[in-house]
Design a protein around this nucleic acid. Structure first.
Lengths: 260, 260
DNA sequence: CGACTAGTTGAGGCCAGTCAATGTTGGTGG
DNA sequence: CCACCAACATTGACTGGCCTCAACTAGTCG
């Protein structure tokens, strides 16, 4: 724990409990939607400049998460939504018997924590898959502001509805697709989301393990691994560990819609 | 199409397209939350009397649906939420390739249509499983009222969050449970919901077919049928067609949490 | 270097799907 | 009232896709 730590030293977190996020309050780490590059993908989308300024007054401090740290855990009291500003996170749901499953992956611009909205406590856990940063949006303030700014209220509703629709798609995937369709769907989904964020839609780095992919898709890690190998053999993609290059998008799409 | 139609004649719908719901406007079918027996389970829960009256001004006419009729279909424009006042409905999601799956069942007091909230069009279809009745809540009015009544806004958020949590539970079920666990979970869930509505938690009539149950649980109808038979053999329940009597709730609960 | 985590690949087994025959129920018409 | 039909449900035999278990490799970190 002394001088040989490879990561950038961070004295502020020296006495913090391990693996739990800390609010960093060095200087002005308050977030500003009005100058954020993600504002057109995020909660402020379409807001008038004046409303943006109001939103700025509500958005709280940023939180930095190191890989593996959790933003919140199941059972913690719900107090805020979070906008992903940097990095990748996963949401994990837990059953009473200890079973757990990845319910979603979050890229920048995504809003995290909607499941706890309006309830007392979080029902799931959010963990950073790489060093990440999120903007805190205290929910009480957001609710208040949403009452004053109809377009913001509308955006909030839209994010919630999208979350529900997305979950429905996953249910369809888990309930009726075969393993190869699931993985193809997953890759195409990632591809699309990276594209919309201005990144390459055909070449990216997976931030999650085979096991985490499997958990999300209702498959075992060996099955995921085998599918990657098979897709590569069939010329659909090139894979090397977590580096993926999709070389035949149409063929991947064809896999998805093969049978009813 | 003349006099031999077996259903009770309804001149108002004579020239309507078949199997699509019609708004019945005979006399005063406007709904009133303040006098509704379901108000403590539904959107008005916990509202002050004055706020209830305001909500009454917003809730629109009732819609009656015969068994098999749809409340709305995928692609139709979104305009309202619906509160189930009587009967049972199902939500079906559709994939591009025609595949479809039941995403949820709705009993009285449930709010239906949240998935379309804030979006232009519905992404799924809602169909009555028996003769049913819903209250229409025009969404624009509701949004406006939610801005004026914080508790109502909060309730709306709570319903949305619960929908997301529920979907997460289903994802867990579909992704990691074995067939017997899925059916047990389904039955216990129904049991609990009937109990909270004041009905028997151990004896009820399934309003859906084996195929629909299977669709919801990611199983084939034959598997569902076999499981019912097996559960009966094992003394967990008595089943006769759609009549179910749960005779050993603890054992059913034990099935659910068996393995991680 | 040795320990550990992540990933790949193979062999075999089992759960649920598939296909098919039969039984049951409820609505309809003679 | 009964016969008929279609939709729904049950049950059996067989199949196959994914899981399980296990061995091995590659990369990382102390």
């Amino acid at each position: 724990m002394s001088s040989s730590v490879p990561r950038p030293a961070d004295p502020a977190t020296a006495e913090s409990p391990p693996r739990q996020a800390q609010v960093i309050s060095i200087r002005d780490l308050k977030s500003h939607c009005s100058s954020c590059t993600m504002r057109e993908l995020c909660l402020p989308v379409g807001l008038a400049p004046d409303d943006l300024k109001l939103l700025d007054t509500v958005v709280g401090s940023r939180v930095r998460l190191k890989k593996g740290e959790s933003l919140y855990r199941a059972g913690e009291s719900f107090a805020a939504l979070y906008a992903v500003r940097l990095g990748t996170l996963k949401t994990t749901v837990l059953a009473e018997d200890g079973r757990e499953q990845v319910a979603g992956y979050h890229l920048l611009g995504d809003i995290v924590g909607l499941d706890g909205l309006g309830t007392e406590r979080h029902g799931c856990e959010v963990v950073a898959l790489e060093d990440s940063e999120v903007c805190t949006i205290p929910f009480e303030n957001l609710e208040e502001l949403a009452r004053r700014i109809p377009p913001l209220q509308h955006n909030l509703h839209q994010f919630l509805a999208r979350e529900i629709s997305r979950d429905h798609s996953v249910m369809l995937l888990l309930g009726s697709m075969r393993a190869e369709e699931r993985l193809a769907t997953f890759l195409l989904n990632l591809s699309d989301r990276y594209r919309r964020r201005g990144y390459s839609s055909t070449e990216f780095v997976l931030r999650m393990t085979r096991e985490e992919i499997g958990s999300y898709l209702g498959l075992k890690l060996e099955t995921v691994s085998r599918l990657f190998s098979r897709f590569q053999d069939e010329g659909l993609l090139k894979v090397s560990g977590r580096n993926v290059k999709l070389t035949d998008l149409p063929a991947l799409k064809q896999i998805v819609g093969q049978r009813g």
